Simulated assay, not measured.
Amino acid sequence: MAHIYISIVSHGNDDDIINNSNLKEINILDNVTVIIRDNLSSPKLKTYCAANYFMYNASDAVLGFGANNNINFEVASNLGMNKTDWFVLFNPDLDISAAMINKLSASLGNYSSQIFAINLFFDDKFSKMENSLRKFPTFCSFFNVLKGSSFTKAYDKKKLSYGGAVDWAAASFLAFKSDLYKQLNGFDENYFMYYEDVDICYRANKYFNQKVIYLPDIKAVHQGAYRNRNVFSKHFRWYLKSLLRFLFKSTFGMKK
């Protein structure tokens, strides 16, 4: 059975991680290793990880989402991750049961694809689905904003077939075959935050003919903050900068 290496990056998310009892159960599964990257070097989180046998590493400087996950990929490789194992991006504010991780592990071997997304919800009753599966944006997508719509068009999850392919999925939870992540050189670290997930899915599709496969019966709750929606925030500035980088890169072939 392939091993699953879960990569979590904490930007001050101590309480999200510490209070997540499911994460402790996931970490003791035989074929799972949870790696927590602490972007703020919190003594509290370090102590908790040591007491509960999470693989912990910390940053000397504040790094972006992509850079931190790339470091976790190196950690996983040093732990023995091979090309047939799975590297899973996992937001600290995400909650999924150990049973669902076992179900995911059993499902991954049924496909030749190398990127998978799951079904994210806003509530633990799984009644309010998050629009976490979307189509690639283009410069024409700016017209969506003028019409009062989201910049990127979301797929209707209810109309997607099991194992259906989508352009990209939010990195809140995204599973990569280890070998593909390595061939992609991981995330483009020029994105500090936002659109690095769009970019890596785009490159996987364009250069390796790998589309994201959707597994609707693998369910998790995501407590997304959506701080980029405040136009006066630094998160909105990061969002806009990353968006423009992706559009120029995908349209004009700008190199990484």
Score class of each variant (00 low, 15 high):
N39G: 06
N39I: 07
N39S: 09
S41L: 11
S42N: 11
S42H: 04
P43M: 04
K44H: 09
K44I: 07
L45A: 02
L45Q: 04
K46V: 02
T47Y: 08
T47G: 09
T47E: 15
Y48N: 07
Y48C: 01
Y48G: 03
C49Q: 07
C49L: 00
C49S: 08
A50T: 09
A50Y: 11
A51C: 03
A51S: 12
A51K: 14
N52G: 01
Y53G: 00
M55N: 12
Y56P: 05
N57V: 10
N57M: 09
N57D: 15
S59G: 11
S59D: 12
D60G: 14
A61P: 01
V62A: 11
V62R: 14
L63D: 11
G64L: 05
G64S: 01
F65E: 10
A67G: 03
N68L: 13
N69V: 08
N69S: 03
N70K: 00
N70W: 08
I71T: 14
I71K: 15
I71R: 14
N72E: 06
N72A: 15
F73S: 03
F73H: 09
F73D: 05
F73I: 08
F73L: 06
E74W: 05
E74H: 10
A76S: 09
A76Q: 03
N78I: 07
N78M: 11
N78E: 14
N78G: 15
L79E: 12
L79N: 04
G80S: 04
M81Y: 03
M81G: 00
M81F: 00
N82A: 02
N82C: 10
N82V: 11
K83I: 08
K83P: 01
T84H: 13
T84A: 10
D85G: 01
W86D: 03
W86A: 08
V88I: 12
V88Q: 05
V88Y: 07
V88K: 00
L89C: 13
L89S: 12
F90E: 05
F90S: 00
F90G: 08
F90L: 01
N91R: 08
N91S: 15
P92D: 15
P92Y: 06
L94C: 12
L94R: 07
L94V: 12
D95Y: 15
D95S: 15
D95K: 14
S97N: 02
A99R: 03
M100N: 12
N102Q: 14
N102F: 00
N102S: 12
K103V: 04
L104T: 08
S105E: 13
S107H: 03
L108A: 08
G109W: 02
N110W: 05
S112H: 08
S113C: 04
Q114S: 11
Q114D: 11
Q114H: 10
Q114G: 00
I115D: 04
F116L: 04
F116M: 04
F116T: 04
